[in-house]
Amino acid sequence: MKKLALPFLVILFFVSESIVVDLWPKNEFYEKYIFVPRFLLITIVFVTVYVTRFYGIVYGFIFGLLYDVFYTEILGVYMFIFALIAYLTSKAMRVFYNNVLVTSFLSIVAVSMVEFYVYGIYLLIGKTNMPFETFLYNRLLPTIFLNTIFVILVSYPLQQQLMKVPIREREDEDYLL
């Protein structure tokens, strides 16, 4: 049962993103400001830090693929960045002191990195023609705001849950990448 806890947790956050967007009150505010829930990404950052890097990259890869196939129908975009974010997080954690606050901060940085990256790619392939200023004020800032609130609410319980995840060894797996 305990082995299934981690996949279940990640699936929950994966589904919750769509539910949040669906149930968000649909008024003019919704049309003007784009709040993008990035709960899955935040969870992947936490998994990388509190479980292992290997788990982080694998979960990032698998759920990024699901995200691509199910939601956006442009393959590869999220699959690549989620795995890369997991890798970069583990690199960053060697420099920083391991602490919930630091991890939370890193996850917010990751959220903005992903936003910039996806904006860049969509601009490149012509899926959007949003001006940079609109992106910054109507999309990036609200998104960071929403995800910061989420991180504040969830970081501590999430950390506690992830520390309980049973894995065979928690040592460094440098032989993989």
Binding site: E17, S18, V20, V21, D22, I34, V36, P37, F70, Y71, T72, E73, V118, Y122, K127, T128
Partner: peptide
């Protein structure tokens, strides 16, 4: 029935 909605709202897609 709608079961999903693209959370990154670059494209408006519903499932």
């Amino acid at each position: 029935t709608v079961v999903g909605r693209n959370p990154d709202r670059w494209q408006e897609l519903i499932i």
